[in-house]
Design a protein around this nucleic acid. Structure first.
Lengths: 231, 231
DNA sequence: CTGAAAAATTGACCCATATCATCTTTTCAA
DNA sequence: TTGAAAAGATGATATGGGTCAATTTTTCAG
């Protein structure tokens, strides 16, 4: 009956975004007319913390990171796979600038939607607004879990969380080529890059994963899960 | 030109909630008819993590904490002063249970609004939905700052943040009687209760604050600010 | 293909905090 | 008013993981 709730440091929301389906044909046309698709190259920045919000971004294809930067430390807030928005938390009318920066990890297609048009549709279409509320509250809840983990779990558990998340949510396969650097993983899990290297090697020595440079293969996900829970 | 952005570990949103003003007279009546005001006594729990969401709570008067609990560690997510909602992040339709627990610190008046009625109004009244979006995104942004601080700042800076927040946002005066225990402060700033005691004494010895049991008086807020920035 | 810059790796050192144990003070129900 | 439980305080000790420095490997523009 010891029913200890587990929080996960997972970095992406499992939430399926269905909000674009809620638009009328007319609204979809309005979005189309007031948005552009841009191809970003690997590593490029798509929005900068402190900059004015003039578009809401939608990642059509690719992988991006959203992060905070105080000039000394970075903290990755979330990984953004295809099918997700960036910039929704800038929808608050009090907030005219981005609270975070975002970069793409791989060549990506980003759709930029004019924020005024976005707001307008938000004010007209209730079902759409309702979906946005779903997304925002889902994001919050996911962030709570990450917050808890980074605050209380030790490095082993935090790293295990990230590996599990990459396997199950981001790449959806047990073997993948990492577009993230060791430093990115460090910033995702709130530790130093050196510690990431050391722990990855430890996991590898313990036969939980197999590493060859940027390639990672998860061998024993149950044991990783246990480390995530106890760590 | 060194323009380092400062994140704050502040625990409450500075956002003024104006959403109830956006309701029509009829909707206000609907809310009134489908809500109850409950007086909670100091320390009582007003919602439990994992329990079904059947009401959205609005703190009319008092002070509450919203926290995560995994059975071993607690993390305070936010302090909730009068005039704020609890349970909005449970508005996602995917989520039928509370992602956190909440308790009141002092005798408080909580208004419980039926979640179905709340949702219904949300779907009818765009201005109201828009305000809720504002609140949710504001909360997210505030949480980002706290997340960053708890991950990267040292204990001194985190504690300074909390004291500043209590002074400027929660009690709005430099001398106040703390309803939070040392343990609460610890859970708010991600450290052990012993460390809180030690650092508070250090701050007191350095004449930044004056402490007498539960009473705290802030003497040198500029220096606290500096500790928050460098810590 | 090549050379310089970036990323990854490894080791040595150490310090900010957690943990544990003990003691004192405060709180609060009966 | 009292006694038990909770909260607060303080010292001793241990350690997880950061920082720094040096080396190797990889990446990528030209």
């Amino acid at each position: 009956m010891e029913d200890r709730i587990q929080f996960s440091g997972c970095t992406i929301s499992s939430f399926d975004c269905r909000c674009l389906e809620k638009l009328t044909t007319q609204e979809q046309k309005l979005f189309d007319d007031n948005s552009v698709r841009i191809a970003y190259k690997k590593g490029e920045m798509i929005c900068k913390q402190g900059g004015f919000v003039s578009q809401i971004m939608y990642v059509e294809e690719g992988l991006a990171k959203v992060y905070l930067d105080n000039g000394k430390n970075l903290l990755l807030l979330r990984l953004i796979p295809g099918g997700s928005f960036i910039g929704l938390s800038a929808l608050s009318e009090e907030l005219t600038t981005f609270p975070y920066s975002a970069n793409v990890y791989v060549d990506s297609i980003i759709r930029q939607i004019d924020v005024k048009v976005f707001s307008m549709v938000l004010e007209k279409n209730n079902a759409f607004a309702r979906e946005i509320i779903n997304i925002l509250s889902g994001n919050s809840v996911q962030l709570y879990g990450r917050f808890f983990c980074l605050t209380y779990k030790q490095a082993y558990g935090r790293l295990a969380d990230i590996i599990i998340c990459l396997t199950e949510r981001v790449f959806k396969q047990t073997k993948f080529e990492l577009p993230l650097s060791r430093k990115d993983i460090a910033e995702l899990s709130g530790m130093s890059a050196e510690t990431v290297v050391r722990l990855l090697r430890k996991f590898s020595e313990d036969n939980l994963i197999r590493i060859q440079g940027k390639s990672i293969e998860v061998i024993d996900i149950e044991k990783l899960q246990r480390i995530s829970e106890t760590g």
